[in-house]
């Protein structure tokens, strides 16, 4: 059953069998155990994720060192590489948002230690800022907005 559960979480199991897995967990009183399994599995996956992103980072560092011959900006490289991993493509920190943010002009000051103009307003449609709000609602406690973060801030995804 545990193998089936982990396969399910890995997206490898036939989802037709999910019901069976959860029913099995219930009928054998293994709910709590199954729950802990999620976390163990999750921890393992996290490690893999770390390795993966570290690898990506090193590749990207090498790419950055390569001379850029054509017009596309260096910043566009990470987008291409990361988007090849479908696991991340729909997450809240979407690539689209990063690109959209790159087009943002106006009150942003590049590479300057700034004295904050307290009157400055961040634009309403600044999707990058919204990502921070989503992350806040995801991970900070006492957030009722947590029930709706997905719909409220990623409706257009």
């Amino acid at each position: 059953m545990k193998q089936q559960l982990s396969a399910l979480i890995d997206g490898e199991a036939d989802v037709e069998r999910c019901e069976h897995v959860f029913l099995a967990a219930k009928s054998t009183g293994e709910v709590a155990q199954a729950w802990r399994d999620y976390h163990v599995i999750r921890d393992v996956m996290r490690d893999e994720c770390w390795t993966q992103s570290d690898f990506t980072r090193r590749v990207m560092a090498r790419l950055e060192d390569e001379p850029v011959i054509f017009a596309p900006s260096v910043a566009s490289f990470p987008q291409k590489v990361v988007s090849s991993s479908p696991r991340f493509s729909k997450y809240t920190w979407s690539i689209a948002a990063s690109i959209a943010a790159a087009f943002f002009v106006g009150m942003f000051v590049l590479h300057q230690p700034v004295a904050v103009d307290t009157a400055a307003q961040i634009a309403d449609n600044d999707s990058e800022t919204d990502q921070y709000v989503v992350a806040h609602h995801n991970y900070a406690p006492n957030s009722a907005t947590y029930y709706i973060q997905d719909v409220a801030f990623n409706a257009g995804e």
Partner: peptide
Amino acid sequence: IFSDGLASVSLFVEPVIKGMQPRVGKK
């Protein structure tokens, strides 16, 4: 993450890297 027991506040910190538009202001 900071809290007074009820309200919570998140502080995000990341290095400003090439190609990233830093933002300054409030909303």
